[in-house]
Design a protein around this nucleic acid. Structure first.
Lengths: 252, 252
DNA sequence: GAAGATATGTTAGAATTTTACATGGAAGGC
DNA sequence: GCCTTCCATGTAAAATTCTAACATATCTTC
């Protein structure tokens, strides 16, 4: 009841960007203004809206205003990435131990994941913060040098970290993909890490939105046959899909 | 004149994320509150800030990690912490290698630090992200289990990280302090890490706002004589100050 | 069904913002 | 140089919004 109303308010705000209390009062005539205020307060606590004089505005609305290095990246191909993240989230079982990378798709995945009992390793700073919001997650951050462009870490000594850790699942993404060059990224040290992760995990799920296809980055960390599941969007080319399925790799 | 002031306000807001009118009034004592209001209004028109009840916040701040709610909690004792951070920032030399913790004071320090060539180690996720904004910083994140309450990491194997790293300076803070119990924090694993850091660093600077005095947390990680410099605010009691100075510890 | 927790309503009072008007000084025309 | 106009700024009262406090209702849990 309360939760429903709050969600409805959040939706409305995302839609309209900004609402005054009066407008909210019109939309919800059966509750008092005070209750609506309290709802807004809670949404603010959750970091989903910003209260301004007279009402509130959606955080998403604010994020549209201008662009910064990292945040700019996060708004490109948003819809596809969210869909991919939702698919990936549906594949995660309770009590599982898994690795996630620090990319923007992983960021959306972190948001979409249900708050189950999970052990999660990541090398993404922003991803780790997002994961830490969920009560039931046990989050472990991989240390190392911070890469400023994607806010991830990588370290030549990562191998040492992994010696005493286990995870069943690796959910990672790539900056570029071609059938010939496989999955690639922009930093040697990052590629090394992802190779290690692949080797350590029992299964590797690759999240790849179709905008990455045909691009090549300097360092390859996996080829087609190295992964177990490919999670992508509807624009993924049919002929490429066959390349995967004929190797018994699930494409979804 | 007007334009300069407005730009200065915008800069301040980008640095601190959020400011109340009171805080602005302190920064600009020679103009009236109304003028500052008008400045904020103009900046809002330009889409650079968002006015909220009591003051304004930077758009950039909103664009950052959405998981960070803008609660009152984060604004408690803000002014003191910023002043402490500014003092600490002034002590840092170029080409230095240093460790910072992941507390809120360290967060302010990260914002106040000049963009010089520095090697910085930290165990704070949000601090690492903030540090990564500066072009000349080389940032290294310490890995480990993520503590949800303060977004820091700690790991029993931290010692292994440190075997191949060196830093001259440790700038850390504590959750609580009494002369008898020393500097303490709320997690064993965190205390262990901080002890290690102390041992590794040539000098230890402690940032302590006076609200922490008289409180005791479960795990002590340093006593008075373990530190080299204490950075605090004006409310620091004189008798306590003497406890430090008579041990040749600089209090500022 | 009782006790406690949670959610909601109502009101007064506090705080902030807006409005309206007054002042002062700088730019520009004569 | 002097006047006019315009813009930035200051002041204070009025309007609005927000918070705090308490009362009431509803939902949980044992």
């Amino acid at each position: 009841m309360k939760r429903e109303r709050i969600e409805e308010i959040a939706e409305l705000l995302d839609k309209r960007g900004k609402l005054t209390l009066e407008q909210l009062d019109e939309q919800f005539p059966n509750v008092s203004q005070m209750t609506l205020r309290r709802d807004l307060f809670q949404l603010e606590q959750e970091g989903r809206i910003i209260r301004v004089r007279g009402g509130a505005m959606s955080v998403k609305e604010v994020q549209k205003v201008s662009g910064e290095p990292y945040t700019k990246k996060t708004t490109i191909h948003t819809d596809e990435k969210i869909k991919i993240a939702q698919k990936a989230a549906s594949l995660i079982d309770e009590n599982c131990s898994l690795f996630m990378d620090g990319g923007t798709t992983a960021m959306y995945l972190a948001k979409e994941m249900p708050d189950k009992n999970l052990h999660i390793f990541t090398n993404g700073l922003a991803v780790a913060i997002e994961l830490a919001q969920k009560k039931n997650f046990h989050v472990t951050m991989l240390g190392g040098q911070v890469m400023k462009d994607n806010l991830s870490t990588a370290s030549p000594v990562a191998k040492a970290y992994f010696d005493n850790t286990n995870f069943e699942l690796a959910i990672i993404s790539a900056s570029a993909f071609t059938p010939e060059n496989g999955f690639s990224c922009g930093a040697q040290i990052e590629a090394d890490l992802l190779k290690l992760v692949r080797a350590k995990a029992k299964a590797t799920y690759m999240m790849l939105d179709s905008s990455k296809i045909g691009k090549i980055m300097p360092y390859t960390f996996a080829h087609i046959e190295d992964i177990d599941v490919l999670i992508t969007d509807d624009s993924f080319p049919a002929d490429l899909k066959e390349e995967f399925t004929k190797r018994n790799i699930v494409v979804m």
